[in-house]
Design a binder for these strands. Structure first.
Length: 690
RNA sequence: GGGGCCAUAGCUCAAUCGGUUAGAGCAGCGAACUCAUAAUUCGUUGGUUGCAGGUUCGAGUCCUGCUGGCCCUACCA
């Protein structure tokens, strides 16, 4: 053990949704860093919790007819199951809705009050009289006062881009109940952050706690240069209360109001620590009020302000330790674009697990993550290539091509001359460790891969498979394999933070568990070599494709309400929602074989939210099995017998519920607003549409 | 509207303080090898560093403007 003591947190996932592969960037990154610190012998603890408070949870609980507690308990279990499956090991996983958190919130709030940072003032809130709750702006929709686009969110118009406040909307409606929200002036408690200006400037600009891009952003945004023309900019008051009813802790000296979720969420880091302390007998203050313990937060760039302004301000005021470092990462993109439900790239952790090993993703993210906060791209083709060539072809292959020559025997009693390979890798250990320390996992894995290349070159040059034919050279074969297996083990140590399972397997193969970074510094000698078992399978593109197909969710359409306009004065909404595509030729058009078809069978797909399973007849016994997303709009029994238009030559697509061999033509935004194409009397199945 | 970050090979990314001929991996192409999970090794193709200027002996790197992307924020910035 060294004397470093490190407390690490990852951001608290919100209890309103499942973990997806975007979340996993952060948890995998953090877990790798934590495992690295543990492997180095640093005393490291890793805490997380579910973020449970707020209006969204309230609404969800009501919709489902359950209590908030039931909703968050179920979600917490699901989150922890996903994390565990990806090898993410927390020392404690708590909840912001815990007694520990309430007590800590009370204490910190008291300090902030006593420091004179709290002021109370009336602010405008929107009240939904039917649902009996206050609405955040995004829960109100109405007609844009500027361009009159219907069904726009409460804060800005997606059509014309203008901004406004919800009361300015024409015909504002609560998205919960449809009621007209009432604007009420309600008391709020605000923290006067500007009073902490000097402290925050010093802390954020010190160069020690934040990545330079983040510090620059804060400076430009808030802190400014007092000597410049603009002068220092003022930090705005932070509204930390919400009028009840609100799912959250009631503020003890401000009855009828709860803390805004972002007040109690980071305190959840502490509450989780507290639970761990109570369980293990550790002393809470040794971690949160000690100069000897480092606190590291890992977060996404979207929640920067909460962790770099509000949170340090709260900690400072309440007399707790400040973060040693806030590590901020970018978002995940898939194939260069935002994750998309309709493209199938919004992949849930649980869906991923149905098809692929967690370690593939751990490795891939590691190989892409640098110290900066740019977005990282999960290019699916690259994912397959990288895992197969780096991990299976290069690293695991080292064991695969050497172990069987010595299985059942032992490694050499003395480490043979390897031309300096092992020592050269030892010499790189510190550099690799530094990359890990700086969260530059991409550089770390690159270095490790180069070592694997050298080891592969070595075995190629020495060709033990040739020597094996000569019984007199058995000892030389054993020497070569002892070297290669030791080089492999070295790589397994270096990769242990990323691939803990591989390190375990390497330990089993050579009958010497890997438990410390320094295990890479001394060659193993004389230990028995177990029989070689495959450690990792290659990925096929088909596995990835199936995962994507299973992730496809049809986009929920905007619930655009019909206008009360004259029958011929058709609105522009439909065309705007789906702009015209580029011009095509007649040759392009004839590629699509549209046919009249009769629905001869229509079945509900019980497990699917939106799909009906149709059997279409093209006449003469020719049929197509089709899954159509029209469940909300049509009943199966109403469809049987009717004629539709279908794409008859569409490449069949494997869906979760079966093979879909075509498409039924329909218009409309989705859900109940789907309108099947009809044909006039006289048409018969099998006729082509020209 | 204000602010921040970014733009380098087909793709994903490097390039120290401004310093030689801008490097890797993957993909592609050619060969060797056959122990290994179609793995490995060697060779090789591929670049007007987004655009236009400027500073400098020298610019991917610094400055100005433009274009494009991402993020934050907004009658306050």
């Amino acid at each position: 053990m060294t004397d470093r003591r490190i407390l690490v947190t990852a951001a608290l996932p919100y209890a309103n949704g499942q973990i997806h592969i975007g979340h996993l960037v952060e948890y995998i990154q953090t877990d790798i860093w934590v495992r690295f610190q543990k492997l180095r012998g640093n005393r490291t603890v890793f805490f997380c919790a579910d973020d449970t408070h707020g209006t969204a949870i309230m609404i969800r609980a009501r919709e489902e007819g359950r209590t908030e507690e039931e909703v968050i308990a179920e979600m917490s279990e699901a989150h922890q199951r996903d994390f565990a499956a990806f090898g993410i090991e927390f020392d404690n996983y708590g909840s912001t809705n815990s007694p520990e958190n309430r007590e800590l919130c009370n204490g910190i709030w008291k300090s902030i009050r006593e420091a004179g940072l709290v002021k109370e003032e009336d602010r405008r809130d929107l009240y939904d009289p039917e649902a009996n709750l206050f609405l955040p702006d995004r829960f109100v929709r109405g007609t844009c006062p500027n361009c009159h686009a219907v069904n726009q969110p409460g804060d800005n118009c997606s059509k014309c881009g203008s901004t406004y406040s919800p009361p300015e909307l024409i015909d504002p409606r609560s998205v919960i109940s449809g009621a007209v929200p009432e604007a009420k002036m309600m008391p709020h408690a605000l923290i006067e952050l500007e009073r902490l200006h000097d402290f925050l400037e010093e802390w954020s600009q010190s160069g020690k706690h934040l990545q330079p891009e983040v510090a620059n952003n804060l400076r430009g945004q808030f802190l400014g240069d007092p000597d410049s023309e603009d002068g220092a900019k003022e930090l705005r008051d932070w509204d930390v209360s919400r009028p009840m009813p609100y799912f959250g802790f009631e503020i003890p000296d401000f009855k009828g109001n709860g803390w805004y979720v972002w007040f109690d969420a980071p305190i959840g880091y502490m509450a989780s620590t507290k639970q761990w302390c109570d369980r293990t007998g550790e002393n809470f203050d040794d971690w949160w009020k000690s100069d000897d313990a480092e606190i590291h937060h890992f977060i996404g760039k979207d929640i920067t302000y909460f962790h770099t302004l509000f949170w340090p301000g709260m900690l400072k005021t309440a007399g707790f330790s400040l973060p040693e470092k806030v590590h901020i990462h970018g978002f995940l993109r898939v194939d260069g674009e935002k994750m998309s439900k309709s493209q199938g790239t919004f992949i849930m952790a649980s869906t991923y697990l149905n098809h692929l090993e967690p370690d593939y993703l751990r490795y891939f993210y590691a190989s892409k993550l640098g110290p900066g906060l740019g977005d990282i791209d999960l290019n699916l083709e690259e994912f397959v290539n990288r895992v197969n060539s780096h991990l299976v072809g290069n690293i695991v292959n080292l064991a695969s091509r050497s172990a069987k020559f010595v299985s059942g025997g032992t490694l050499c009693e003395e480490y043979p001359d390897d031309g300096g390979l092992f020592t050269a890798a030892v010499a790189k250990a510190d550099q690799i460790a530094e990359f890990y320390e700086q969260c530059d996992f991409a550089s770390a894995t690159l270095e490790i891969l180069q070592l694997a290349d050298e080891a592969n070159r070595f075995i190629n040059d020495r060709a033990p498979w040739k020597l094996k034919k000569d019984p007199e050279k058995a000892e030389e074969v054993r020497q070569i394999c002892s070297i290669v297996l030791n080089l492999f083990r070295q790589l397994a140590v270096f990769l242990q933070p990323v691939l803990p399972k591989l390190a375990e397997q390497a330990g089993e193969l050579l009958n010497a568990p890997i438990s410390n970074w320094d295990d890479a510094k001394t060659p193993l000698t004389g230990t028995p070599v177990s029989e070689f078992k495959h450690m990792m399978q290659r990925i096929t593109k088909a596995q990835v494709d199936t995962m994507v197909d299973e992730s496809v969710v049809e986009e929920p359409a905007d619930e655009g309400s019909a206008d009360n306009e004259s029958p011929w004065n058709d609105g522009p909404e439909a065309l705007e929602a789906e702009p015209m595509t580029e011009e095509c030729t007649i040759d392009d058009f004839v590629k699509v074989d549209l046919r009249v078809a009769r629905v001869i069978e229509a079945k509900d797909v019980p497990e699917a939210n939106k799909l009906l399973n149709l059997t279409l007849s093209l006449g003469g016994g020719e049929t197509r099995n089709v899954f159509a997303g029209i469940k909300a709009a049509y009943k199966p029994e109403d469809l049987v017998g009717r004629l539709v238009v279908c794409v008859a030559n569409l490449k069949p697509r494997q869906m979760k519920f079966g093979l879909s061999e075509g498409m039924v033509c329909a218009s409309g935004p989705g859900k109940a607003d789907v309108f099947l194409l009809d044909v006039d009397d006289g048409a018969v199945p099998g006729q082509r549409v020209h």
